[in-house]
Design a protein around this nucleic acid. Structure first.
Lengths: 240, 240
DNA sequence: AAGTGGTCTAGACCACGGA
DNA sequence: CCGTGGTCTAGACCACTTA
């Protein structure tokens, strides 16, 4: 018997899930690697296979693992082309999600102002990074964005030599698992720098994307404000 | 043993789900009513409780039923205030979904043009209804919309004395269960009638919503094109 | 107290993928 | 062929709601 126990009120399969998520986040199993099979996990934990299955089912639904009959269960690489753009609802004319390629990136350390603290559920003045990026698609400017992240989750980010192209890549680099996101969609007229960077005339209408990405535990990890010139691309929201 | 059998390749729990959905759509159990409990269903069908559970789990996830420990399993009323606006991503300042109240509604029978046929996966010229609506929120114009639906699914709709406020209400009235929807979000300048109906000046930027709602089987049932004046409301997309 | 869904067990067999 | 996840069974007990 390991960290899971039958004397908590929390259902066993959720404890199993928590434990597996924790081990993935800790790097016990790298992205792309196989997880022990169901029988083995159930023996290790001294519980039934069905209980392990229920934990794995939920994790698959949350895109943490992928299971295939006959092959096994694998940790999903969130930075793979398939998953890297899952928090972008912008599609190219062929309906595939695009996130834009990084053109330019500057990082500044600062203290959270009130809006920033509110969006990230921090206290006023807590340390954050402000990341400004310009993104292009097929060489054409797509969006300018300001991304706010708490310093606590990304220690030493400002000294990184590599660029930090997106929250998905950052999260993987710092061992954080991402969950859900909400995005407000609005419209505004491009002004000054924004217009210049996007290569459009002043007052061209652009899409305004105000997005909060959360970790698997539901804590906000990034607040991003983007101005986007869609051109022939479009924004697509799916509803269940 | 009823309509489910063990000699198909389709998993038993999916056959059970299909059958239950069919019975709900047929009106065997009205919205709000209780479904027989798991034990009873499993006895009726001659299968194990676990198999019934798996079917019910999926149906709950698809918002067809709601289950509560100690109470029972109930057919969800899609037209209840909670579920009626689930295909609208517009939120009021308090973050609650709003669909707008119906102000005005006209229905015209017609033959599908190419775009309409394409969106609804019909053949050119198949009979459709074009429904024009004006919606307001707290008495203030919110959106004008043109909704296209196939006549096949809504026989006699043009003779209805009741207004048809939304696809959700229509679907319930005609015994169709709704599944998912996709919505393209764009921006445009309000012109002519649209500007007049929304009570804004010409060329005011409005949100353009291009939405396809599908049945539980995945067939398109409504294509709606709406021009929306958000004012203090906003558009919120959720991503998993 | 009775009845419901929720959790958990311990098996069996099937369908699929790769060596 | 073997090992994997997917389906299905037949129970047990728990937690919650209602009367």
């Amino acid at each position: 018997m390991t960290a899971v126990g039958k004397f908590s009120t929390r259902p066993l399969y959720l404890q199993v899930k928590d434990m597996l998520i924790q081990r993935i986040a800790a790097g016990d199993w790298k992205p792309g690697a196989a997880i022990p099979n169901e029988i083995e996990l159930s023996r290790e934990l001294g519980i039934s296979v069905g209980t392990v299955r229920k934990a794995l089912d939920e994790m698959e639904h949350e895109r943490l693992i992928s299971r295939r009959q006959g092959r096994g269960t694998f940790v999903i690489d969130q930075t793979s082309t398939e998953h890297a753009v899952r928090f972008s609802n912008i599609r190219d004319p062929g309906a595939v999600r695009i996130g834009g390629d990084l053109v330019n990136c500057t990082i500044v350390a600062a203290a959270a102002n009130q809006t920033e603290a509110q969006h990230l559920e921090l206290r006023n003045g807590e340390p954050i990074f402000r990341i400004h990026r310009l993104r292009a698609h097929h060489g054409v400017p797509l969006m300018v964005e300001e991304s706010i992240v708490p310093q606590a989750l990304f220690p030493g980010l400002e000294r990184e030599t590599d660029d930090s192209p997106s929250i998905v890549v950052l999260a993987r680099h710092y061992g954080v698992l991402l969950g859900r996101a909400e995005e407000k969609v609005g419209v505004a007229a491009a002004k000054g720098d924004v217009a210049k960077l996007l290569g459009v005339e002043e007052n061209t209408p652009v899409l305004l994307l105000d997005r909060v990405v959360r970790t698997i535990d539901g804590r906000p990890i990034e607040w991003r404000l983007a101005s986007c010139n869609l051109r022939q691309n479009y924004y697509l929201a799916e509803m269940n």
